[in-house]
Amino acid sequence: MIMLETENLSKNFLLHLQGGVRIDVLRGVDFSVQAGECVALTGPSGAGKTTLLRSLYGNYRAGGGAIRVRHEGAMVDIVTASPRLVVEVRDRTLGYVSQFLRVVPRVSALDIVADAARGVSTQQAHEMAAALLARLNIPARLHGLPPATFSGGEQQRINLARGFIGSHPILLLDEPTASLDNANRDIVIEMILEAKAAGKAVVGIFHDTFVRDAVANRIFNVLPLQDAA
């Protein structure tokens, strides 16, 4: 069952402040991912992997084409959907783990993760969050602290916990293991495999070929466009 597909997707940036320079990043992208499948986006640096991933999430506004997401049984086109519908799709269907943690300062790690849980009581959310953080080897003494002062690897694991706690049917992962040591990397691999086994669709950028080989069913190669024509 196709969970997410793009059709003739394009994306360009028009930089008004740089004299209207137009940068074409994606053109004619046709891509899909099935339930229970993990697709790894590959390609040279600057080819537009992150741009594609962000477009899928609606973080970037697609220039043309369609991005269809299976949301509550029906296909929703992220490109044309109202912002309100996109918020709903993100809330219930589409999870995203970015490379960087961007949160309200002074909020504890546990609250940040629990906040992303869906459809459970506050107490359940906190229990789930604590369990996830523990699994990701964040010591309990850090749970109550705001993550601003955490190391890069710790912040990334907070981010991962936040992405996984919602148990979204589709997960978009941007370099989820970039700053992790091998032990934590293996835990993340385990979590991704579990998500696949649970029928979730995963799209990810994995710089680390070891991780990519461990989790990806398929590779989707994003090629750089020739210089803007």
Partner: peptide, 21 residues
């Protein structure tokens, strides 16, 4: 106007690009 993160991360209008930058 639009989704907050979309407008702030991928601003389309020159004025929004100026604000964000």
């Amino acid at each position: 106007s639009g989704l907050t993160d979309q407008v702030l991360d991928d601003p389309q209008h020159p004025y929004t690009q100026l604000l964000v930058s």
